[in-house]
Amino acid sequence: MRLAVCAEMVYGDLPLIERVVRIHEQGFDIELWDTRGRDIAALAATGARFSSMSGYFGGSLTDPASADEVVASAEKLVPVALELGVERMVVHPAELGEGGTAVNPVLRSTGQMWLTGLRTLERLAELGAKYGVTFALENLNTIVDHPGIPLARAKDTHALVAAVDHPNVRMMLDLYHAQIGEGNLIELVRTALPFIGEIQVADVPGRFEPGTGEINYRAVAEALCGAGYGGVVGLEAGAAGGPGVPAGDAALAAFRAAFES
Rank of each mutant, 00 (worst) to 15 (best):
Met1Trp: 08
Met1Pro: 09
Ala4Phe: 13
Met9Gly: 00
Gly12Ser: 04
Asp13Glu: 15
Asp13Trp: 12
Leu16Met: 15
Leu16His: 10
Arg19Cys: 04
Val21Glu: 14
Arg22Met: 11
Arg22Trp: 12
His24Gly: 06
Gln26Lys: 13
Phe28Ala: 04
Phe28Glu: 02
Asp29Ile: 05
Asp34Cys: 04
Arg36Gly: 06
Asp39Cys: 13
Ile40Trp: 05
Ile40Pro: 04
Ala42Arg: 15
Ala42His: 11
Leu43Ile: 09
Thr46Asp: 10
Gly47Met: 11
Met53His: 07
Ser54Tyr: 08
Ser54Asp: 10
Gly55Tyr: 00
Gly59Arg: 06
Ser60Leu: 02
Ser60Val: 06
Asp63Ala: 13
Asp68Thr: 13
Lys76Tyr: 05
Val78Gln: 05
Val78Asp: 03
Pro79Glu: 02
Val80Ile: 15
Ala81Glu: 07
Leu82Asn: 01
Val86Ala: 00
Glu87Val: 05
Arg88Ala: 06
His92Tyr: 15
Pro93Ser: 12
Ala94Arg: 03
Ala94Glu: 03
Val103Gly: 08
Pro105Phe: 08
Val106Gln: 01
Thr110Cys: 13
Gly111Asn: 11
Trp114Cys: 03
Thr116Arg: 05
Thr120Asn: 00
Glu122Met: 15
Glu122His: 10
Glu126Pro: 03
Glu126Cys: 06
Leu127Cys: 07
Val133Leu: 01
Thr134Gln: 00
Phe135Asn: 02
Phe135Glu: 00
Glu138Cys: 12
Glu138Gln: 13
Leu140Glu: 00
Leu140Cys: 08
Gly148Phe: 11
Arg153Lys: 15
Thr157Glu: 02
Thr157Ala: 09
His158Arg: 09
Leu160Gly: 07
Val161Ala: 08
Ala162Asn: 08
Val164Pro: 02
His166Arg: 06
Pro167Ser: 09
Asn168Ala: 13
Leu175Ala: 01
Tyr176Pro: 02
Ile180Tyr: 07
Gly181Val: 11
Gly181His: 06
Glu182Trp: 14
Gly183Cys: 13
Asn184Val: 11
Glu187Gly: 10
Leu188Asp: 01
Leu188Gln: 09
Leu188Ala: 04
Thr191Cys: 04
Thr191Asp: 01
Leu193Trp: 10
Ile196Tyr: 07
Glu198Val: 15
Ile199Ser: 06
Val201Gln: 02
Ala202Gln: 04
Val204Ala: 04
Phe208Ile: 04
Pro210Thr: 14
Gly211Ala: 09
Gly211Ile: 11
Gly213Gln: 03
Arg218Asp: 00
Val220Asn: 07
Ala223Lys: 10
Cys225Asn: 14
Tyr229Ala: 07
Gly230Tyr: 09
Gly231Glu: 08
Gly234Thr: 15
Gly234Glu: 12
Glu236Gly: 11
Glu236Lys: 14
Gly238Leu: 10
Gly241Met: 02
Pro243Val: 12
Val245His: 08
Pro246Ile: 10
Pro246Met: 10
Asp249His: 11
Ala250Ile: 12
Ala254Pro: 00
Arg256Cys: 09
Ala257Glu: 02
Glu260Ser: 12
